[in-house]
Design a protein around this nucleic acid. Structure first.
Lengths: 243, 243
DNA sequence: CGTTATCTTGACGTACATCAAATGTCGTGG
DNA sequence: CCACGACATTTGATGTACGTCAAGATAACG
């Protein structure tokens, strides 16, 4: 699916008292947090709110990259494909997360909505102009990219050297850490999880039941987890050799 | 090995007519390329040339991060470890490459000299001050981080979804692309390569001989490769299902 | 309520790991 | 120059964690 298909559909209310950015729920957690009211007005003027249905892509790998993206609600998966269909999910992005940073003229990975997603499209030209005028925003963006780099290095270690059990624990621990609540939603399918962890759906499923039987997590529903023993889950995720 | 052990040993000639940066062989290929003569003088004033013997570490994972590093000659491996000794090599850095970008107060990975390495240490304080005064340098640095991010995403796909044969082809193709010469040196050991590709030394060795027998590469010596059939090597590296 | 997609569980296969030995490479000293 | 030892690499034999193939069990949806 070509990105152009989405361009016309401005769905969110785009004009409010101070512009939509001022009322955006993602403000505190995203780049926008580094901006004052005037900066927020300028951001509102250039950012384009959009919405994507489950499975729809925000952009595809190889599309010419003329914008950054900021997720305001829902979950996005970032994917790379091999010609024969093998797929690697590079990560999941949620509220406040910034997408499209790894560009070399074209996007080097695609972004697809897992569930219903709302996001803002930030055209590169105007956004870069704003960056020039707002050093705080620039520093924040640099920090985000550096953090992404560090997070990806954890993933490289995971994919290169961890067992299936450790990988699943790694995933669940990361997801649970975001939620901070007792029960956490898993909006993505087993296939998405498997492609994120470099495994198959069957192995993911089997490992889930292993962890359930070991009383480390509970899975009241297929898309819901409760971490029963956070220390053991973390130890497993970090490669603790304990079974 | 603690990084502090290296701090005192300033080995390279540190004072020349325009400062050592002006005569540095890595200048064209590194961040320094974005600086004019005055900027180069300032960089010379703050950068600290060092040298490391094979196996010695420039810094370790977990060390408090107070500097960036710029490799001027030799090869560095960037590594992450699991408590039980499992190791993932995140990448190899050579002349002109920038290290220490993925920091969160501490280095999230270590850097070790593969062979004899010369590098410059750029203390964060002065370097960031220079960045403020040199927007071109800042843009260049941002571009480097974004490129690193994209390169790591290729690696995630490799580790998550490629076969041993495709991984080895991926590695050889990348190495050969740098060299651009007929025969390319492999300064790193089979263990380094294996830990980079998420494999064992035995599998790497076996796969080398497979590729040799398939006339895709030649290995006149263990640490030297010649790519005989670049298109096939690339096709393999990209997951082409052809044997 | 059927119908269909998703998830789980089971039986079996395989790519790569592990264990072990042979071969090659290089530095050192006689 | 050659003999020796230490270590890296290659090759071989065997094991196993995870993949593949194939049913069931659940859940989602009209």
């Amino acid at each position: 699916m070509k990105f152009e298909g989405n361009l016309g559909r401005i769905v969110l209310p785009a004009c409010l008292i101070r512009g939509h950015c001022a009322v955006c729920g993602a403000r505190e957690t995203s780049v926008c947090g580094s901006l004052d009211d005037r900066g927020l007005d300028e951001l509102s003027a250039l950012s384009q709110p959009h919405e994507a249905a489950p499975g729809e892509s925000l952009y595809d790998e190889g599309d010419s990259a003329d914008a950054y993206f900021n997720v305001t609600s829902g979950t996005v998966r970032v994917v790379k494909l091999l010609r024969d269909g093998r797929r690697q999910v590079l990560g999941f992005a949620g509220r406040g997360d910034f997408l499209g940073l790894a560009i070399k003229g074209e996007f080097v990975a695609g972004a697809e909505a897992v569930d219903r997603v709302r996001y803002c499209r930030l055209p590169l030209g105007p956004f870069r102009a704003l960056l020039e005028r707002r050093p705080a925003l620039q520093r924040r963006l640099y920090q985000i990219v550096a953090d992404d780099l560090a997070a990806q290095q954890d993933q490289l270690l995971m994919l290169g050297r961890k067992t299936a059990r450790e990988r699943v624990a790694f995933f669940l621990f990361k997801i649970a850490a975001r939620g901070a609540k007792d029960a956490v939603e898993l909006p993505m399918s087993r296939l998405d999880i498997a492609d994120y962890l470099g495994l198959t759906i069957e192995t993911v499923s089997r490992t889930f039941t292993q962890l359930r039987k070991a009383k480390i997590v509970a899975l009241p529903k297929a898309d819901r987890i409760v971490v029963l023993d956070p220390p053991r889950l973390e130890a497993l995720a970090e490669g603790g050799s304990q079974n």
